Simulated assay, not measured.
Amino acid sequence: MESNLSIYTTLLTLESLEIPSSNIIPAFIFGTLTYCLILFFNMTVLLTIVFNKKLHKPMYILLLNMPVNDIMGATVFFPQQMFSILTQNRSITYSACFAEAFFTHLYGTALTNILTAMAYDRYVAICCPLKYNTLMSSNNLLKIIILIWSLDVTMISIIFSLSFRRHICGTKIVDIFCNNPSLLKLICGDIRVNNYFGLLTTFLQQGFTVLTVLFTYVQILITVVYKRQSEAKSKAIQTCGTHLVVFLCFEFNLLFALVAHRFESTSPSLRRALGASIMIFPPILNPLIYGLKTKEIRQNLIFFSKKKVSPKKQKKKSRN
């Protein structure tokens, strides 16, 4: 065991990305383009909702939290990785690593909270339409949004306050990006309290999220199946099916990445791949599946483009 190292003067070493020197520039370009696409898709959804009064409804106000969270998650992950690829430097200070891990977990937990709130909103709208305006009033909507973020910040703050130490006994991060399980492996002494509390909060929070989302979507499907409109039925089944598949895949990756660190027999490569996929794929897929695939948002995007093009056409017609 190495001697105790001062937190503030220690450089940590992240796991190698194992990119051949010939692929450094292509990998950097691909990663940068991916990050730019994430920003473009999420900003498109964000600005469309913000600047269109027709979309100032509970469903879209809740959806507004998703691009904000996805931009945060992508910004925590991509710039640091792109810099590391370009410079071939896998070093990071403990304080920077701690901050990166904090916001990484903040992003993951917020995403599950937002999806749960959105599922509840759809459940009320479809299964209890007469109560929708009451249950999803402006005051209740504000309470839901505050609850999403306050629970997220509180839980992650407690977890990381337990993880913080004045000294560590190692400098090797066993992952390609910083996270709480990797930081725990650097701690000197007993970390059973951290492990027990982390597992407890993970299973309680994720268990509640999964059960809530499954319950709401099952109730939505049951309600829609009993309706006679075949078009609405097939559309709802397709939408709910897509959302459930994406949600369950994300939950599986998240749980595996968090729990796999506790078992030495788990494949490190598989753990890293699934962990990185949480940071890469949701910020790309979420604005497409939950945002741009939504008919009302798509129509307003088309409306804006037509609004910009029409004055030019009118000028041409007037000249002719």
Rank of each mutant, 00 (worst) to 15 (best):
residue 115 L to F: 07
residue 180 N to Q: 15
residue 71 I to Q: 14
residue 75 T to Q: 13
residue 32 T to L: 05
residue 77 F to H: 06
residue 65 N to W: 03
residue 57 K to F: 06
residue 292 L to F: 06
residue 40 F to V: 11
residue 132 Y to R: 13
residue 282 P to D: 07
residue 235 K to I: 02
residue 190 D to R: 02
residue 177 F to H: 07
residue 231 E to Q: 12
residue 254 L to T: 02
residue 283 P to T: 03
residue 92 I to M: 12
residue 117 A to Y: 01
residue 214 L to A: 13
residue 237 I to C: 10
residue 47 L to A: 14
residue 81 Q to N: 11
residue 37 L to I: 06
residue 256 F to G: 05
residue 93 T to P: 12
residue 267 S to H: 14
residue 21 S to P: 09
residue 221 L to W: 03
residue 188 C to M: 07
residue 300 N to C: 05
residue 111 L to C: 02
residue 99 A to C: 05
residue 42 N to D: 06
residue 243 H to L: 06
residue 173 I to H: 04
residue 139 N to P: 02
residue 190 D to F: 05
residue 250 F to N: 05
residue 131 K to S: 14
residue 204 L to F: 14
residue 103 F to H: 12
residue 293 K to H: 10
residue 287 P to Q: 02
residue 307 K to V: 04
residue 310 S to C: 00
residue 240 C to F: 02
residue 171 T to W: 06
residue 1 M to P: 09
residue 300 N to P: 09
residue 286 N to Y: 10
residue 73 G to V: 04
residue 56 H to M: 05
residue 183 L to W: 04
residue 144 I to F: 00
residue 100 E to G: 08
residue 160 F to C: 00
residue 153 V to Q: 08
residue 190 D to G: 05
residue 50 V to S: 08
residue 140 N to K: 08
residue 148 I to M: 11
residue 191 I to L: 07
residue 240 C to Q: 09
residue 284 I to M: 08
residue 229 Q to N: 13
residue 100 E to M: 08
residue 215 F to G: 00
residue 65 N to L: 02
residue 123 Y to W: 10
residue 296 E to T: 15
residue 90 R to H: 13
